[in-house]
Design a protein around this nucleic acid. Sequence first.
DNA 1: GCCCGGAGATGAATGGATTTAGCAAATATA
DNA 2: TATATTTGCTAAATCCATTCATCTCCGGGC
Lengths: 339, 339
Amino acid sequence: MAPKRVTLADVAKLAGLSTTAASMILNGRPDTRLSKEAHERVLAAAAELNYRPNVAARGLRTQKTRTIGFISDRVATTRFASGLIEGALAAARAADHVMLVLETGGEAKLEASALEAVLDRQVDGIIFASMRARELHIPELPAGTRSVLLNATSQRHAVSVLSDEYTGGRTAVEVLARHKIADGVAVLGYSEEAERGLFRSVAVNRRVAGIKDAVAEHGIDVTAWESVWLWEADTGYVAAKKILRRHPDIRALLCMNDRLAFGAYQALQEKGLRIPDDVSLVSFDNDELASYLRPGLTTVALPHEQMGRDAVSLLLSDDAASGERLVPMPLIERSSVIG
Amino acid sequence: MAPKRVTLADVAKLAGLSTTAASMILNGRPDTRLSKEAHERVLAAAAELNYRPNVAARGLRTQKTRTIGFISDRVATTRFASGLIEGALAAARAADHVMLVLETGGEAKLEASALEAVLDRQVDGIIFASMRARELHIPELPAGTRSVLLNATSQRHAVSVLSDEYTGGRTAVEVLARHKIADGVAVLGYSEEAERGLFRSVAVNRRVAGIKDAVAEHGIDVTAWESVWLWEADTGYVAAKKILRRHPDIRALLCMNDRLAFGAYQALQEKGLRIPDDVSLVSFDNDELASYLRPGLTTVALPHEQMGRDAVSLLLSDDAASGERLVPMPLIERSSVIG
DNA sequence: GCCCGGAGATGAATGGATTTAGCAAATATA
DNA sequence: TATATTTGCTAAATCCATTCATCTCCGGGC
């Protein structure tokens, strides 16, 4: 039904002017000497025909496509990690850009072809995202290709957006300190002793460093550091039971993520221990889960949406910032800490 | 460092042939009469220079961009809904296409601008997705624009991909029947009596119809239909408590989704009732939650990934199928039904 | 010796924009 | 009156690949 797309030539013809004039006017170029009347005619014609420029054609000339490539290992390993995409999408939209989203599953082969696919489409910049903070290997990019690492680091690439894990770790401990919990604290999920020399991730190491520093500063006595390699609900359940068996006097559990905390809830419930009256819990992530739990779980949030936003604005900003952009991890207070 | 992109002209020059020849050879056109030697030279030149065609330029000529627009209200309202995107992404990649993902938050204004944004980029087709199955209002598209509705229906648009809710509803009931549960069953989340005339959604209505038919066929006695408007963990908790108070003899809970079931778990635990020994549970969705729960929740899965895949393959397939593509909802058996 | 057909290749148009260079008329300057 | 300058606008090149329409040889047929 609807005829083919309106082109600039159509607009120019209707306005009785050249495409040059139409182009200049529609792009609002400042140096033009075209008359007021010409402006009006072109604008009116464009409006009447409902003209929209063909981005591919424009991009061919200008080398700008107003398109960003977002290459990530997974889009949605965990629900909350897709906040990275949501934030990026929102920021891109605000800047009048769109995003090509590609998923690689972490496979090198797919990573390479994903990169080619976005390069072939002349994107203005590329975001390399990882759903769990880690070191990424990025191949060399054509000169002039802008890129930002999101929730990831890389040797070669200058700029990356990360959550501020060190401060986040401190925050979690400070909640305990503020609520006068000074002993009977167990850390669930990480133990330096058990994991020394094993590679965790930059994020975890920094978080642990924050926890340790804050614990020392506030003179908190940590009864146990329990190592759990996979941070899932069932492993959390098992580990929490173990801690409770060995240390019946535990008053607080600092869990390395919300799924572990979820498992701990189950273990505590089984033992008939009440949260927070008998045992307090603080955790990390602010997974969707955290709000479902009863009582609600107090947790230090991973600011995924903000990180996504920041990645886009860094990518699109003119000043070639470099280094790490650390995004604060906000404390979400619910009811799992006694007070 | 790396010089500017290699163009077809570069390849042609290195091969000592015209761009016409190079283009024909690289595109493997069958009718060409170019010599074997010419083929070899062009292919070798392309490989040596690592030539990749500029998709924008090609698209300008061929009107094909190998790009799909994916416009959705939310990308990740719930973790598992983003399976829609994951599936679509995987299918697109398999078909050597990429996806422009746009999020509208359901706002009409953003929907309109998202549509323009993808149309401006000459996408080969558009998927309109909704994270919760519902009726979508899609504006008229330019002639020849292919489109598929994903997890949504619309008056105007012919083809949509939906989960097979009717059969899914039956499946849930059949689990109960198979395990010889014939009475003391309560449905948690929907009551026709309470919600008569209120708009739910096509999906819910079909699911309920399936439940009703299967219940009648198997001669199951449903003790209570409890209406819950918002299907969340806390509302499920409250509703389950209410049911247990009024009907202490309940043996099974059929929950309209996993979050409600999660709330029911909490209510049952508080009452000291064991799952599945005292009360069995069946639910819908296969949310990530369902696997965290103890015991694991038996649930009828929303086949989001498959739906995403189907949407892309329908969009890209030649035969202009129309009507609804109903994707089966698989039963995920865990341990919440006595047996 | 001339014409014809086919093999092997290419020039130029095309798609839809941006942009450089420059033209013609009107006005200003001397 | 003759020369500069400004004003208002446009032809044509460009971005890169695809494709239509030809063009040039060369050997075979008559």
